[in-house]
């Protein structure tokens, strides 16, 4: 069994239009590396380097089994086979 990852519309250019792809990894960062191996470029849309440390991009939300990963360890959040991962870009903006 693998981990199902729900891909938002804007990132489906990396998955050949697929709405969901399967991946593997014991943590979110390992899963993202695994996804990037099969869908090159997707990692760069999910994470960024800040002050020498790689972190999720501010306006990308990732959920593991409906939990926002920011509350369960971020990129270090643990994963197991059968987990459901959802990626959703923030809906945000502003007047300045």
């Amino acid at each position: 069994m693998a981990i199902e990852v729900r891909i938002p519309t804007i990132l489906r250019t990396y998955t050949g239009g697929e709405k969901a792809v399967a991946g593997n990894g014991a943590s979110l960062s390992a899963l993202i590396d695994d996804l990037d191996a099969g869908h090159p470029g997707i990692k760069d849309r999910l994470v960024e380097e800040k002050d020498g440390k790689v972190d999720l991009r501010r306006f990308v939300n990732v959920y593991i089994n409906d939990e926002d990963v920011r509350f369960i360890g971020g990129l270090d959040a643990p994963l197991s086979d059968g987990d459901q991962v959802v990626v959703l870009p923030a809906v945000a903006g502003g007047s300045v």
Partner: peptide, 23 residues
Amino acid sequence: EMVNAAGSPTFYEFDSTELLELY
């Protein structure tokens, strides 16, 4: 209608939990 989690006159952002519920 979504709650503006930023509660700001110059910025808006959907709350991340509500965003997932919505989708």
